[in-house]
């Protein structure tokens, strides 16, 4: 199992002459936890946009799957999501108008075609799975409440819960710890670590303490390409990384 699940190779994208991503290459294995760090404008979010199909790269390939047989470039977001890539945004984006249960049920892995959804009737095991998941993210009490009534941290968990309900092979998580209390952070880190046991997880984070808590391999982005890769201690000793972060 030393093969990769996702392999991004030599990808570039330009916005109005500004090279947001410059011949970036990146790969991750099927059950790996990875943190991506980098200063503002390093291209972290754009990288996620490319993998999830929101932004189409000007050149390069994004290969996917056990055998790396599928090229994700040119597929739309929904298909990429169905292929097994889940994404959590920086700001919690849950459907505030709907209950926690409805949010999770919507995310629950199922046939996504309109007609199938229209005539879908949740089976007993679907409901049980959703309730289990709610308990896992600590929202069992809130399951009938509207998502909009939750606290900020609870929304973050709900969103992570929705990602898990999708049962993706790869999880892309953008700044999960932002705005959380210390206790919530610990819990979030544990959730992610546990998730990474069965799937690949990529976490983009600014907070070095949080990254340290994750205790995983770290990739440093700078100006749209990879600057360094390795353990957190390894990359923080790297002179280039120090220069970038402190500013020469």
């Amino acid at each position: 199992m030393n093969g990769s699940l996702l392999e991004v190779s030599a990808v570039s994208v330009t916005f109005d002459g500004f090279k947001a991503i410059n011949r970036l290459s990146f790969s991750i294995g099927p059950t790996e936890l990875r943190a991506i760090i980098g200063p503002n404008g390093a291209g972290k979010t754009t990288f996620m946009d490319i993998v999830t199909g929101k932004t189409r790269p000007d050149e390069g390939q994004v290969l996917w799957g056990e055998e790396l047989t599928r090229n994700l470039v040119g597929m739309d977001e929904a298909r990429i999501a169905r292929a097994g890539i889940g994404r959590k945004f920086q700001r919690p984006t849950v459907f505030e108008d709907q209950t926690v249960f409805a949010n999770l049920l919507m995310a629950h892995k199922n046939n996504r075609s309109p007609l199938a959804v229209l005539f879908y009737k949740p089976k007993r095991q679907d409901i049980a799975a959703v309730e289990t998941l709610a308990a896992r993210i600590g929202l069992a009490e809130q399951i009938r409440r509207k998502a909009g009534e939750l606290s900020h941290g609870q929304k973050q968990w709900l969103e992570i819960g929705m990602l898990l309900a999708q049962d993706p092979k790869l999880l892309l998580v953008d700044e999960p710890a932002a705005g959380m209390t210390l206790g919530e952070r610990e819990r979030t880190a544990d959730l992610l670590k546990e998730a990474a046991k069965t799937r690949a997880v990529v976490v983009v984070e600014h907070d070095m303490e949080f990254v340290r808590r994750l205790g995983c391999k770290v990739t440093v982005f700078h100006e749209g390409s990879m600057l360094a890769e390795g353990s957190l201690d390894h990359v923080t000793r790297n002179q280039d990384v120090i220069d970038v972060y402190l500013g020469r």
Partner: peptide, 26 residues
Amino acid sequence: GTFGSVIRGIRDDEARVRFLGYPVEG
């Protein structure tokens, strides 16, 4: 049902529904 959840989701945040894997256009 869930269909209702999805279309209300599309109303509130179309992109998020797409990232859940639902073919929004359909």
